[in-house]
Every structure is written in structure tokens, then in C-alpha cells.
Design a binder for these strands. Structure first.
Length: 293
DNA sequence: CGCATCCCCTGCCTGC
DNA sequence: TGCAGGCAGGGGATGC
């Protein structure tokens, strides 16, 4: 589910529920997600105020008072939901209301004002950890992450540098988080179709000074920025069950031009081709061989 | 070093 | 209806 637009949608949904508010307690329903959860995870969060929520690549960064940062990655199936504070019962409360747990609710953040932020992740490819904010850029999981494609907007000259000497396919190069951060399988396929470039082409053919490469870089840089901003504006893509933390599903999946559209007519005006599915480095690629060269 | 392959895990869909 | 197999938005480890 979550590529850059979905993570950004999640960030925007969580911000009003968490920023400026304190975490009173953290509940762990299992000792691990993708990786074991740090033994001091709960203690380092309790009582801290979430000062700001940022995004880097596909990571959410919750900056905490006291100099720590909570880093969360949603993997393939992770999502957050907000359960608003319940109104206090009018008369004496005879029981403590137990919130309903859904399957795969692994981590719950209780906020001081009563709201609960629930992390759900069926496949458990997601993970979280707490780190000192000052060391974050040296952290093994954060080190080496590539450029952010939107802020500032990706430049053709950056693509020139990133693809120089790359022996791999354009598709694989764009999926590589060490080059550009935040693209995943959907948005790479969509960006390449918008740019009219074949995912099978060698990435290095976009580097250098010849006319084709210069044009291709310009088209690709624009296509990447445009598809990501369009998707963010649509609240991301909801394939199965993704929804932003506010509970609203995204609707960018209706704007897919190639992803998961094998056999459909190519949507490009005037193109008579059809969308094909091929496998590259073990993952599906959708493209039109007629207009993507 | 770069690249392909396999693997982690659960759920859903297809075909038999 | 049940079951096996394939596939899924990510990315880390391994081996060539």
C-alpha cells in the first residue's frame, strides 16, 4: 500500500491528532513487528509530546520532546487509525470502556487527551523504532536514502547524476530508494507511462548529453513530480483497505493509467497499444510497449 | 560494487 | 465447499 503519497496522506491525517499533544501510554500487543521492538520503546515515548510529524521517503518521523524521534515504516500493509476520545459518561462510570481491538492492531498510542492512535499491520512488514533525533541521519535504516522527489521538485540534472553508469533497468533504478526516495511499484509504473519511457530501457540511457537523454530526463522528472502530487491530492491510492488516518480512503487508484490494468487499451490519446504485464526483479511491471520507448 | 533471487507474513483471488 | 497456488503497495540478506 504505502508509497510516498500514502505515507504523506497518513502524515497529514495524524498531525492534527498528535502534534502538540502528549503520549500518555503505549500498548504493545506483540513483541515484534518486522523486527523486535526495542526494550525501552514504551518508556522512551511515555510522557513525551509529539512536537511535529515529518516524512522522509516512506518513513514517518514523529519528533518528540526530549530529543528523541519515533520512526515508523508502514511496510506493505501498515496503517494508522485515530480513535477519538470518547465523551465521558454522564453518571458515575461503572466500568472502564475497553476499545474494540481489530485483528492485527499491534501498537496503540494513548494520547493525554484521550484519543488513541492505533497501528494495524496484517503482514507485519512495517516497523517502528525510537532514536535520538541528532543521530537519525546516521541510523542504519536511514543512512543512504536518496533524494526527496517533491521538495524541492526533482530536477532533470539530478536524474542525469543518478543514472550515470547505472547498469540496471529504468524500472529498477526508480524503485531503488538510495537514488530517489519514496517511489514504489505503482508510481514508478505510472510515472514511466506519463513520461513515455519503457521500464525495460537501461537507466543509463537517460544520462549524458544526447538529445534523447535530455528530453527523457525532463519528461521523467516532470512525470514523477506530477504523479506524486496528483496522488497526494487524491489522498493516495486505496487498493484493498488503505485509508488515511482520518479513515477516508484515497481515490487515486481510479486514475491509474497502467498499474494493474493488464489487457486494457492504452489510455494515451491516439495510442493503439494495450497494457502489458511483465516481471522485473520479481515484481509486476505494467506498461504500453507502443508508446513507452 | 551491482544486480537478481529469495524471504519475511497474512489475506485474497483464481482455478481445479 | 475446500484447497493449493499465485499474487500483493516494501525492503533486507545473500550469493553470484
Amino acid at each position: 500500500m504505502p508509497e510516498l503519497p500514502e505515507v504523506e496522506t497518513t502524515r497529514r491525517g495524524l498531525a492534527p491528532a498528535m502534534e502538540g499533544k502528549a503520549i500518555s501510554r503505549v500498548i504493545l500487543n506483540r513483541p515484534d513487528l518486522r523486527f523486535p521492538i526495542q526494550s525501552d520503546f514504551r518508556a522512551r515515548l511515555a510522557g513525551r509530546t509529539v512536537e511535529r510529524i515529518d516524512r522522509r521517503a516512506k518513513y514517518l518521523l514523529l519528533r518528540l520532546s526530549g530529543g528523541d524521534v519515533l520512526v515508523a515504516h508502514l511496510g506493505m500493509s501498515g496503517s494508522f487509525r485515530i480513535e477519538a476520545a470518547r465523551a465521558p459518561l454522564a453518571t458515575a462510570t461503572l466500568y472502564r470502556e475497553i476499545p474494540r481491538l481489530a485483528a492485527h492492531d499491534h501498537v496503540i498510542f494513548e494520547m493525554s487527551e484521550g484519543a488513541r492512535i492505533v497501528y494495524n499491520d496484517p503482514r507485519r512488514f512495517g516497523f517502528m523504532f525510537v532514536a535520538a533525533d541528532a543521530d537519525l541521519e546516521h541510523h542504519p535504516r536511514m543512512r543512504g536514502i536518496g533524494v526527496e522527489p517533491l521538495e524541492p521538485p526533482l530536477e532533470p540534472s539530478t536524474l542525469d547524476r543518478l543514472f550515470e553508469g547505472a547498469g540496471t533497468s529504468l524500472k529498477a533504478a526508480l524503485l531503488d530508494q538510495k537514488r530517489i526516495a519514496g517511489l514504489g511499484n505503482i508510481y514508478v509504473c505510472e510515472a514511466l507511462h506519463r513520461a513515455g519511457l519503457s521500464p525495460l530501457r537501461r537507466a543509463a540511457t537517460l544520462s549524458g548529453g544526447d538529445q534523447f537523454a535530455r528530453t527523457a530526463r525532463r519528461r521523467l522528472a516532470s512525470a514523477i513530480c506530477n504523479v506524486l502530487s496528483d496522488a497526494i491530492e487524491a489522498g493516495g491510492s486505496s487498493l484493498k483497505d488503505f485509508s488515511g488516518a482520518d479513515g477516508k480512503p484515497g481515490y487515486f487508484q481510479h486514475a491509474f493509467r497502467v498499474y494493474d490494468r493488464e489487457g486494457a487499451a492504452c489510455p494515451k490519446r491516439g495510442c493503439k497499444g494495450a497494457i502489458e504485464r511483465v516481471v522485473q526483479s520479481g515484481r509486476s511491471t505494467f506498461y504500453c510497449r507502443t508508446c513507452q520507448r
